[in-house]
Design a protein around this nucleic acid. Structure first.
Length: 573
RNA sequence: GGGCGCGUGGCCUAGUCAGGAUAUGGCACUUGCCUCCUAAGCAAGUGGUCAAGGGUUCGAAUCCCUUCGCGCCCGCCA
């Protein structure tokens, strides 16, 4: 891969600045900022030097500016308001960047292989029903970060941890075996039938002591490996899981692997871990149950105990999660977990338990706040939910209406396909555009937004680029001169395209996805301005070639951004 | 009681980790632009005590302290 030209410019600028500072006898780091629009490409603030140099910042800036000789990628240097502003020579930045995009196509933006194995766990929902919008953030954030990490050069595997052990699953399984459904499921797929058993069983168990006793007995049987019970629970979970993953495929999410929680009980790992923990200096016993005392690990609050066996000797969710993480670190260098913010304390405790078990590596966490309804929190058990499948249907229907309004020349099949791609994109975009820590209140009007900061906006810019390239027809090997791009519209667009690889790296480093959504929107907006003011097909000679190259490079930046966001890029819409 | 996160125009939001020039976009609203590569677009306009108060600093949305509001957590649940 060609070296990121902007990075090269930054390196040259820092070197030139260091030299100038040394000449002036000033001891300061060449720390460079990104200045606001129209004030160059990099800036050095001189305010901190005012005190030691006993001079006004604007004077210092003048002095430094006069010492820096524009060379290499630095086109000019000027002092303004206490800053030294550096301007990049446009063609030195744009020529290699646009060539790179046109040559590498879907690999434009891909980082060098990092040689690091990464395992990213996401979704990991109880297999007791379809995913609702309150849970939608997990797979969408997880899948998007996974795509970004792969693009950045990591050797990444995604995984869904299936919580098939425990009371929730038993309640559902008991319901499937003993109840007759009070009403028809809303949809045909298995998980929509099973979630009704789950909800109904929860109500019955709350009111009926006998039923509760049966569930308790079933839980005991499951934990002690009773074959028939294990088989029933496994069957129910598999049906739901299969349907859940099918639902996820509709929004372009798939998993490289699944790990079943029950595995760690059945293969004896959990028992071995319990034995080892019992030998720890942090282990205490109370009424037959064992726990670790984690106060010295910075765990605060009312309770600093981390219980890992019940009085009857059986394991808890947390114990099995410890087993899972020890298993993960046998298979990977870096583990990334996408989890709701309610899991924060649990993960802190898990990290402490890993230390006690002698495991140095710790999972990296990506936390998100929940999506709620205006009326409050969503709950599968209570049935106060908006299901993702329904949201997808609604989004696709709305998108279909929009396509039909605009296009009369397309086949029914083509319109349906565009509607699907646009609807799914809109839905994902509206989840991913918001910083994960921020709570979201779900509103249909926001989720179905097709304008402005939305996937269709980005997809539309891409379709426009494709349309130009299609009409331009076959062109020979890319030969263009970036110096022919002279307008502000062209320059701004080219610079934005050239920053795509560093946007990907930045998102990957921070394990954050929302900046990519913002970048895609900005890129599309910049492309639309270029499109409005700079005719491409009507331009002639070298100017036409240069603009076509810019369109093609923009198209790849848009398409690859969308791809990392898990959105498809239709060539027309 | 303790811990973690969030608070930015009517609504949504970026920037906060690594303080810097006029606080980023979008929705809504008002007004223009399709004989010209797709108007899911472009342009212009209205709208801001960056929750409140104090501190640090040449400079604070950003760092520190206090307070308020909202969310989440502190199970022999998962």
């Amino acid at each position: 891969m060609a070296q990121d030209p902007f990075k090269k410019f930054k390196g040259q600028t820092a070197a030139a600045l260091s030299k100038a500072l040394a000449e002036l006898g000033v001891d300061a780091e060449p720390a460079l900022d990104r200045p606001p629009e129209g004030m160059g490409d990099l800036a050095f603030p001189c305010f901190p030097l005012a005190k030691t140099m006993r001079k006004a910042p604007n004077m210092i800036a003048e002095e430094i500016a006069s010492k820096v000789r524009p060379e290499g990628m630095i086109e000019r240097v000027e002092a303004k308001g206490g800053y030294v502003n550096f301007y990049v020579r446009f063609e030195d930045l744009a020529q290699p960047a646009l060539e790179d995009a046109v040559a590498r196509k879907e690999s434009f933006g891909k980082g060098e292989p990092k040689g690091v194995r990464m395992l990213l766990e996401h979704t990991s929902a109880n297999p007791t029903g379809p995913l609702h919008v309150g849970r939608a953030r997990n797979p969408i954030i997880g899948d998007t970060i996974a795509r970004i990490l792969r693009m950045a050069g990591y050797d990444l595997t995604t995984e869904f941890y299936v919580n098939d052990v425990g009371r929730q699953v038993v309640i559902m399984t008991w319901g499937v075996k003993h109840l007759k459904l009070e009403r028809e499921p809303d949809r045909d797929e298995d998980h929509y039938r099973y979630v009704l058993y789950y909800q109904q069983a929860n109500r019955v168990v709350e009111e009926d002591e006998g039923a509760k006793a049966q569930v308790d007995a079933m839980l005991q049987k499951l934990e002690h490996g009773d074959e028939e019970t294990v088989r029933l629970a496994r069957e129910a979970c598999e049906k739901v899981l299969k349907a859940v993953t099918a639902s996820m495929r509709r929004v372009n999410i798939s998993y490289d692997g699944f790990t079943w929680e029950s595995r760690f009980v059945q293969d004896g790992t959990v028992d071995r871990i319990i034995e080892k923990l019992k030998g720890s200096e942090y282990c205490k016993e109370a009424d037959g149950a064992f726990h670790l005392e984690l106060e010295s690990f910075g765990i605060t609050g009312r309770e600093t105990k981390w219980v890992f066996t019940r009085a009857d000797g059986t394991s808890l969710y947390t114990t099995r999660d410890l087993a899972y993480h020890m298993d993960k670190f046998k298979r990977t260098d870096v583990a990334v977990n996408v989890l709701g913010e309610d899991q924060k304390l649990g993960m802190q405790e898990l990290a402490a338990a890993l230390t006690i078990m002698g495991v140095e590596k710790k999972p990296e966490m990506v936390y998100y706040a929940f999506v709620s309804l205006p009326e409050g929190r969503m709950s599968t058990r209570k049935g106060t939910v908006v299901y993702i499948d329904d949201l997808v249907d609604e989004a696709v229907d709305r998108a279909y209406d929009e396509v039909k309004k605009r296009r009369t020349d397309l086949s029914e099949e083509r319109m349906r396909e565009i509607a699907r791609v646009v609807g799914v994109g809109a839905l994902r975009y509206n989840i991913i555009r918001i910083q994960a820590e921020k709570q979201i209140v779900f509103k249909w009007e926001d989720a179905l937004n097709f304008e402005g900061a939305s996937a269709p906006f980005v997809q539309y810019a891409h379709a426009r680029a494709c349309s130009i390239l299609k009409k331009a027809g076959e062109r020979g090997p890319a030969a263009f001169d970036a110096r022919k791009l002279v307008s502000d519209h062209e320059k701004a667009l080219a610079k934005l395209v050239s920053s795509f690889p560093s946007v990907i790296q930045g998102c990957a480093d921070d394990r954050r996805a929302h900046p990519l959504a913002a970048y895609a929107q900005e890129l599309a907006s910049q492309f639309n301005q270029f499109y409005r003011y700079m005719p491409v097909l009507k331009a002639e000679g070298d100017v036409r070639e240069a603009r076509l190259a810019l369109v093609e490079a923009s198209m790849w930046a848009l398409r690859n951004s969308l791809s990392c966001l898990g959105m498809e890029a239709p060539e027309e819409m």
